[in-house]
């Protein structure tokens, strides 16, 4: 048998997020015991109150930076982590809460909170990589649990993770799904969206919502042209590109191009 490795110390960190991505780790079911066996979980509040101090071999970071406090905290996490992996659309693109980036946050605060003076927040929700160097970004809203295991696995075995950045169309075609745009006239973001989910929505006759963000070479202008021909108006285009990855650069630019003054 191969030499017993020292188990890497892994910490899971939450920033502005819904917890769905880190819960993917608990959702691993069949793989969970193997994962728990292969790593030493030093910090994972969703799973256990146990906490071990750093430094950590791997930090899995979920969520975006939305407060001055978190802006500081992410630097501490980075300093304590040999490898920092961001998981999910919040951590890699700012998440759905990045919709604030297109509006005036002060206005929201005064409208929503009875005592707005207690609210300390940033004007923008931003990706972790906008603040600290990130070693690997795992896309998705939520992430695919098999991809999460693949990333941990690749790290443990010193290899490159298999998380291709090509379009979701390739996943559709490999599984034999009929193209919903061509055969049904359904608007679908698949051609500009990063693969990874396994092309779930088109297999249920729905268009892709772009949960995995922009693919490696997204032609968003041509995509908008396709959607326009299918009858989607400018407001519809703005909404399409303003989903969970609204602030990912190619999607942000495309939604702004269709915004009415």
């Amino acid at each position: 048998m191969p030499a017993q490795r020292k188990k890497p110390k892994v910490a899971v960190w939450k920033f502005a997020s819904c917890d769905g991505c880190q819960l993917s780790l608990l959702d691993c079911e069949d793989e969970l015991l193997a994962v728990a066996d292969a790593i030493d979980i030093a910090n994972f509040p969703e799973a256990s109150r146990a906490f071990e101090k750093g430094p950590y071999d791997i930090s899995l970071v979920e969520g975006s930076i939305t407060t001055p406090h978190d802006e500081e905290r992410i630097h501490r996490v980075r300093r304590m982590s040999r490898v920092l992996i961001t998981i999910g659309a919040c951590a890699t693109a700012g998440g759905i809460q990045a919709l604030r980036n297109f509006q005036d946050v002060e206005e929201f605060i005064s409208a929503v909170y009875a005592s707005p003076q207690y609210i300390s927040t940033l004007s923008h929700s931003t990706a972790i990589a906008d603040h600290v160097p990130v070693d690997f970004e795992l896309r998705g809203c939520p992430i695919n649990k098999f991809q999460l295991v693949e990333v941990i696995n690749a790290f443990l075995n010193g290899r490159k993770p298999n998380t291709p950045a090509y379009s979701t169309c390739i996943e559709c075609k490999r599984r034999g799904t009929v193209c919903v745009t061509v055969a049904h006239g359904t608007p679908c973001l698949g051609p500009v969206t990063h693969a990874g989910c396994g092309a779930i929505c088109p297999s249920y006759n729905r268009g892709c919502y772009g949960c995995y963000g922009p693919m490696e070479s997204p032609n968003t202008a041509s995509m908008s042209g396709v959607w326009s021909k299918l009858g989607v108006d400018r407001d519809g285009l703005v909404r399409a590109f303003r989903g969970f990855n609204a602030f990912a650069e190619p999607f942000r630019r495309e939604s702004e191009a269709h915004e009415r003054d």
């Binding site: 379009s167 169309c169 075609k173 490999r174 051609p191 500009v192 032609n219 396709v226």
Partner: peptide
């Protein structure tokens, strides 16, 4: 190239 989505559908089919 302005139209091409580089989605790879043509090669898959």
């Amino acid at each position: 190239a302005k139209r091409c989505l580089t989605c790879a559908n043509c090669t898959m089919v």
